[in-house]
């Protein structure tokens, strides 16, 4: 493991001579067994594993530093991206941020790279959590069966995906996991529920109970994903005359009750369909309801590198606050 982490870091620093420092490289491995039994006669157990490799290099140019990171995570060691591949991507992502500028405040199309789109999808996952729903603490309360996004948006939570990081045969209450349709062609079809939240809402559990030892049940995503579209990420960027490509979000400026959204961002300015230069010290703002209704394009680049994942997403317009 020490060798794998060292190889990843070396590969990152070798990408460019301006990569002169590093926050470090991590490698971790986990193997375990989970079992559940109840007095109704259910007994089940399963094994799980995970491996991850991450690198965070630092680049310096004209006395200004930038850092970014990259990682690989998976159930099987032999399917994990090589340490060299992880390191090279971490190096590439860090160097491309050098020379970041500020931009003027504007209202433009915004493209989320997959990591960021995954965080945006995570906000949807929180909004359909049965506990937020029965408490009346989500902007999606009472919206089942209604349109919350355009036709191109379909979201699943699939607990049965082979090799999925969130896959498991049964949930935290012993109910079989399944593939839940959360959003179907833009229509909100289901919340995520355990039996407690379901009973509060007069609905049935969706097999989404998550359980920690000794704790009461809660709701958790299994493999929660936005289905990919047909456009490549380049084609999506090409469709933007002037706009923002987001590669990092900072802070927690989200109000789940109203959907208000405001977060610090880092990324690239898009000019005439191309990434023109890196930008920083900006804030993007909107409302989750409008952002989802404004999804204009979804990329074909879905990779399951977590439990909540998305391909590239383009949103028609957001307020980008700069200088």
């Amino acid at each position: 493991m020490i060798e794998l982490a060292t190889r990843a870091e070396k590969a990152a620093l070798a990408v460019d001579s301006r990569l002169t420092n590093s926050e470090g490289a991590d490698f971790s491995a986990f193997g375990g067994r989970t079992l559940f039994a109840n007095s109704h006669g259910f007994y089940g157990e399963y094994q799980s594993s995970s491996f991850s490799c991450a690198v965070a290099p630092i680049a310096v140019q004209n006395g200004l530093m930038q850092r970014d990171y990259w990682y690989a995570v998976g159930r099987k060691l032999n399917r994990l991206d090589s340490p060299e591949a992880v390191g090279q991507e971490a190096g590439r992502r860090t160097v491309r941020r050098l020379g970041a500028r500020k931009i003027a405040t504007c209202r433009v199309p915004v493209v989320f790279e997959p990591e960021i789109a995954g965080s945006f999808l995570g906000n949807l996952c929180s909004a359909v959590n049965g506990y937020a729903i029965y408490k009346g603490a989500s902007y999606l309360v009472g919206r089942l069966g209604e349109r919350i996004a355009p036709d191109l948006v379909t979201v699943y939570d699939d607990g049965r995906m082979p090799g999925g990081l969130g896959s498991k045969p049964f949930d935290g209450e012993g109910l079989p996991t399944r593939k839940n349709v959360v959003v179907e062609r833009g229509i909100l079809r289901s919340y995520l529920l355990d039996t407690y939240a379901a009973r509060k809402l007069g609905l049935a559990s969706t097999g989404s109970a998550s359980r920690s030892v000794g704790e009461a049940s809660s709701v958790g995503a299994t493999n929660f994903y936005l289905t990919p579209g047909t456009a490549t990420p380049d084609e999506i960027i090409c469709s933007v005359k002037r706009g923002l490509y987001v590669t990092e979000l900072i802070g927690f400026g989200i109000n789940m009750v109203t959907g208000d959204y405001s977060r610090g961002a880092v990324g690239f300015w898009i000019e005439n369909g191309e990434l023109a230069y890196p930008v920083e010290e900006i804030t993007i703002a909107g409302n989750l309801k409008d952002m989802w209704m404004g999804v204009e394009a979804i990329g074909n680049d879905l990779v399951f590198r977590g439990r909540i994942v998305s391909p590239t997403v383009k949103i028609a317009a957001m307020t980008v606050a700069g200088e």
Binding site: S22, G24, A25, R33, E173, R211, V213
Partner: peptide
């Protein structure tokens, strides 16, 4: 006296390493 009960158990082995500038941290 419980009307119902359930048991959850986890067993796990975890290992991790952090390296910085080729030295184990």
């Amino acid at each position: 006296g419980a009307t119902a009960a359930d048991a959850v158990a986890v067993e796990g082995d975890a290992a991790s390493v952090q390296v910085r500038l080729s030295v184990v941290d």
